[in-house]
Structure formats: structure tokens, C-alpha cells
Amino acid sequence: MKHVRAINQKARLIEERFAGAEDSVGPLAERIPFGCSTQLAPGWEVDSGGGTYGLCTPIERDLYDCYHSCYWPAQVPDALTNFADWSRSCGAPVQDWSSIDLVFP
């Protein structure tokens, strides 16, 4: 860490875990196949602090990207064939994301 300097053993342990979390992404990502339904992206993801703010693609920002282009994981309904109206109640995802509902295929 650059700004928080770990001093005691416990802080160093947490720091190592933080650094380790970043490193573990690389090798795993290389093995993940591309493709809408096979991708293992976790979907409704939060960051280490429990929020979505720091994520590169938080759910509320790119919901439609997942929905329309089938980029995001399989647990988002597909707009192409089955659930064309799913996002009707959610005009502005940043504000309204919680109003969208579950689907039961």
C-alpha cells in the first residue's frame, strides 16, 4: 500500500491479503472462456468495502450493456428472445436499478 503503511504484524497480514487478492485475478482470468452463457463473471458484485462505487463496471452503470448485448453473466435476462420488457420500469439504472424484478423463465 502506498498511503497506509502497515506497522504491526496484523497490519502486514491484511496488506498481504490485499495484495494477494489482486494477484489472484490474473491467472484465473486467462482460463475463463468468453461467451455469454459460459462466462463466470460474478454479476452482482461488490468491492472490498462492500460497495459498488470503486468497481470498473458497477451493475447500475452497465446493466443495459449486459442486458442488450449479452455481455454480462447468464443470470441477467436476455432481451433478444424472452424478456424484451424486463427493463421497462428502470429508466435510469443508476437511480432505478432496484425497481427491476426477478424473472421466472
Partner: peptide, 10 residues
Amino acid sequence: REAFDELAAM
């Protein structure tokens, strides 16, 4: 932003 993330991780 970086410092914020570090404090959250700690």
C-alpha cells in the same frame, strides 16, 4: 481514490 481503497482494505 487509491488512498480511499487502501483505507477500505485496511
